[in-house]
């Protein structure tokens, strides 16, 4: 357990319930989690355990049904749409499994996109940040290309650059290697590791134990709860039995 004062993300007793027709699905049931600045955390667990839901709530894409969530010591669980948008834009960088680059925009424009939503950022500053981010992921030579002209690995590197461009407090990666072959997957993991070494805070969702090992801490989820690794193994064995 980390000290609360140093935690970038502080989550207590978080719950998320989905209601469909008359069915009530508890995706998260009393999750406690803290992520310190500069920490590299991997969230893993079987399919449907709630890891992507938790990531979405951390990324302010979704709201919890109950519990508390503090980002940079500020409560964020009950913010309005506009404020959540602003925090997402300034504090969070997303890396998606399917890259989610916009096909009509060039590499440069894709990376620039989140910066264009920031008011009063001069074009010169935007350009500087875009180029810096692209150089960090080794894609500066492809600025005029469209996503369809890039390989999967290259597209994911551009997506990482897009997440880095805004200098966020935390990078949230949802199965970043899920759509890549093993060689490109390794390359992206190496990139994330480098970023971590340079001080980035990263929270990654993965179901692949090989990639989870790259993180300095693993958080295991099962049935919407955080469990210890040993307990997870036992639970999984029970399920298989």
């Amino acid at each position: 357990m980390t000290e609360t004062g140093q935690a970038l993300i502080q989550i207590e007793d978080l719950t998320k319930v989905f209601y469909t027709d008359e069915v009530e699905t508890h995706a998260l049931s009393g999750v406690h989690l803290a992520i310190r600045k500069g920490e590299y955390v991997a969230m893993s667990g079987p399919s449907g355990c709630g890891k992507s839901t938790l990531l979405s709530i951390i990324g302010l894409l979704d709201t919890p049904t109950g519990g508390r969530y503090q980002l940079n010591s500020q409560p964020v669980e009950n913010l309005g749409f506009a404020e959540r948008s602003r925090i997402r834009n300034q504090e969070i960088g997303f890396i998606f499994q399917s890259f989610n680059l916009i096909g009509d925009l060039t590499v440069y424009e894709n990376v620039e996109l989140p910066l264009t939503y920031r008011q009063k950022m001069p074009a010169v500053e935007r350009k500087k940040r875009v180029m810096e981010a692209l150089e960090r992921v080794g894609m500066a030579h492809r600025v005029r290309h469209y996503p369809s002209q890039l390989s999967g690995g290259q597209q994911q590197r551009v997506a990482v650059a897009r997440a880095l461009g805004g200098k966020p407090s935390i990078l949230l990666a949802d199965e970043p290697t899920g759509n890549l072959d093993s060689r490109n997957g390794e390359a992206v993991m190496e990139l994330l590791q480098n970023l971590h070494r340079e001080g980035a805070t990263i929270c990654m969702v993965t179901h692949d134990p090989r990639f989870a090992k790259h993180a300095e801490r693993e958080v295991h989820l099962f049935d919407g709860k955080v469990v210890a690794e040993e307990e997870l193994k036992k639970l999984m064995a029970d399920v298989h039995a």
């Binding site: 506009a82 602003r86 997402r88």
Partner: peptide
């Protein structure tokens, strides 16, 4: 959706 995830407002 991507744009909104990246911080676009309504």
């Amino acid at each position: 959706g991507i744009r909104m995830a990246l911080g676009a407002t309504q």
